[in-house]
Amino acid sequence: MATDTTTLVLLHPAGRMPDTFTGVVQALPAGITPKLPNLGTGTPAEQQQAAETFLDRNELRRVAPAGHGIGALVAAGLAVAQPRRVSHLILSEPVLAVDEEMVSAQLRAMKLVPKFLFRRRGMDKDQALASLESARGTDLRGAVESLDIPVLVFTSTTSPLRDAASVTVPAGPAPWYEQDPHRFAAEVADFLR
């Protein structure tokens, strides 16, 4: 079972708000304390700075960051920048390596989607586009693999990390943990034991 000191920092995907994890928070077992910083809507580097500021302001010294999409990139960046502060790392559909072809294809596709459809999902189109653009050329795979902490990856494809524990999740238009928050909470609780 997770210890009394397990602090799970849930990092929301780009363009979303912390309340995207409401179902997960409600499903977490006793002994895991969730924290939901608002990363804002800036670049991944700005979001990582917002997460670090949140941890400092709340005097959180040892945490288990968990992020989805760009939130996973922020969690990984936090673990790489401050490895002694991170006890476990949880990455859901992580974007750890961003190449030119992927960014270009996603930007073209996102530009075709009307803004109101982004708003329906609680996202801002311009902010999502800027965040994706700023992540161009990022590759944290090697840095994360060199960390001496347990890593769990939730993915609908193949894990981007060789030695990480991996759980296959369904692909879909909405983050999978919103559809199945109890599974996310149970898998994370098992991992933190």
Results as ranks from 00 to 15, higher is better:
S104K: 02
L73Q: 05
T158H: 14
T5P: 07
R85S: 09
R162L: 15
H68F: 11
S146K: 15
L39V: 03
F21T: 10
P160N: 05
S146G: 14
A135I: 00
T20M: 15
M110F: 11
L152Q: 02
I70E: 08
L39I: 00
P150H: 01
P13F: 04
Q179W: 12
V24H: 09
F191R: 06
V86S: 04
Q106E: 09
V151D: 04
G137I: 00
R16Y: 08
V169N: 07
K115P: 08
L192H: 02
G31T: 03
L152M: 00
A164L: 03
A76M: 02
M123K: 09
D163G: 14
E187M: 05
P65C: 04
T22R: 15
A135F: 02
G77S: 04
L89W: 02
L36V: 05
R62E: 13
M17G: 14
A185E: 09
T155F: 10
D126T: 13
L73M: 07
A14H: 02
R16D: 08
Q48A: 05
Q127A: 15
D19P: 10
G77H: 01
R121M: 13
A51N: 05
L147H: 08
R120G: 13
T157A: 15
G42W: 00
T22G: 14
N58Q: 14
P170E: 12
A109Q: 09
V103I: 04
P83Y: 06
G71A: 00
R61W: 10
L107S: 04
F54S: 03
S134V: 01
Q49G: 10
L78Y: 01
L89Y: 04
V167I: 15
A189H: 09
R121Y: 12
Q48F: 03
L117Y: 07
G172F: 04
Q26K: 15
T22I: 13
V151W: 05
F184G: 06
Y177K: 09
L11P: 00
L192I: 07
F191C: 06
P13W: 02
R84V: 10
T3F: 09
P114S: 02
G122Q: 13
G122E: 12
A45T: 04
R62Q: 13
V144C: 05
S156T: 10
Q49K: 11
R193W: 09
V25D: 14
V153N: 07
K111C: 11
F54L: 02
R193V: 13
T7L: 04
Q127I: 10
A164D: 05
T155L: 08
T41L: 14
P114Y: 05
V80F: 03
S146T: 15
E133V: 01
L161R: 01
L140R: 04
A45K: 06
L36Y: 06
T158S: 14
I149S: 00
G42A: 07
A72N: 00
A76G: 05
T155H: 07
L73V: 03
R108L: 08
I70P: 00
Q179M: 13
P13C: 07
D126V: 11
A81C: 11
A79G: 06
Y177H: 15
K115M: 11
G71P: 00
V144S: 05
K125Q: 09
R16A: 14
L73W: 01
S131I: 02
K115W: 11
I70K: 03
L117T: 12
A51R: 01
D180P: 06
P37N: 06
L60K: 02
E101T: 12
I32L: 08
D124E: 12
W176F: 15
D190M: 13
